[in-house]
Design a protein around this nucleic acid. Structure first.
Lengths: 149, 149
DNA sequence: GCCTCAACGAGGATATATTCTCAATCGATT
DNA sequence: AATCGATTGAGAATATATCCTCGTTGAGGC
């Protein structure tokens, strides 16, 4: 939160109650939240914040480098605070929607190598493994269906 | 093309002129084409095929496992024929839009390892490296802008 | 050639996440 | 507390890729 205050001050942008509340919601969640998730959580806390502000603030957080935007092929984006953490990637269960993060040092090396050998200068990357997590009945059923395909 | 004919026959679906033409366009292109690209190319060849049919056919090709669908954050999907080829990944130039494919055997191993260790059964994956390719003036400018950020 | 069922074409419809509008309000500096 | 520019809220507007409708056409089996 102090980081947010600092970044805003640096750009002479006001530290508003809404910005604080939205960052707080992201901060307290370990999951990736959609703009709608954030709005709903705020409503649950008795905060009345318009969706335009939610979208504006999420975009701002990304712009400031304090949050990351993710697209898990759901038709909308999800966001997560990212204060100085290392880049991580995702496994997405296509049956229950669960998202699990992972990191693997070997990936960094390989991807850097690939980009380099093709003359690219990498800025960012996305790695998404879609599959089944097997934690719920639905996930196991989907898994079986794939195996028999 | 024979593969397409066979898959269709197997499901008792007609091998229409339109399906052939659309598959042909994809077959002759090394790039990833959007539904619109396909429609335009068909128009250029004097074929009059409605966009609904283009979408229907692309979805069908994906369904049959003969094509893959890609989303490069452009607001629409791109398609490419994929007849028995190995899975490959992409580098996308954020300045000029160029997409370069790559394959790296080490990735397969690492990703399988990760999925396994987290209890996932992987179905498919997406790896996208966004960066600058430096081939055009615009790409080099964007690259500089990032370096000085 | 005939028949039947699915595919096709044209363009209208849809869906829905995100953005815009603009008057009212707020934050931060003086 | 005054000032001033940025932010906010509510809901309408947008954008636009993709899908639906339904009368017409075509493919493929017999």
């Amino acid at each position: 939160m102090e980081v947010l205050r600092g970044e805003l001050r640096e750009r002479e942008l006001p530290f508003t109650h809404q910005r604080e509340a939205i960052a707080q919601v992201l901060f307290e969640s370990t999951r990736h939240l959609s703009a709608d998730d954030v709005a709903e959580e705020l409503r649950g806390r008795g905060e009345h914040i318009g969706k335009a502000t939610v979208y504006r603030t999420l975009a701002l957080l990304v712009e400031l480098g304090l949050a990351t935007e993710h697209d898990f092929d759901e038709g909308f984006k999800r966001y997560q605070l990212q204060v100085g953490a290392a880049h991580h990637d995702h496994l997405i269960c296509t049956a229950c929607g669960q998202v699990v993060q992972f990191q693997h040092p070997g990936l960094e090396r390989i991807l850097a190598e690939v980009a380099d050998s093709l003359g690219f200068e990498a800025i960012t990357r996305q790695i998404k493994i879609f599959g089944t997590c097997g934690e719920q009945e639905a996930c196991r059923e989907t898994r079986e269906a794939y195996r028999n395909d």
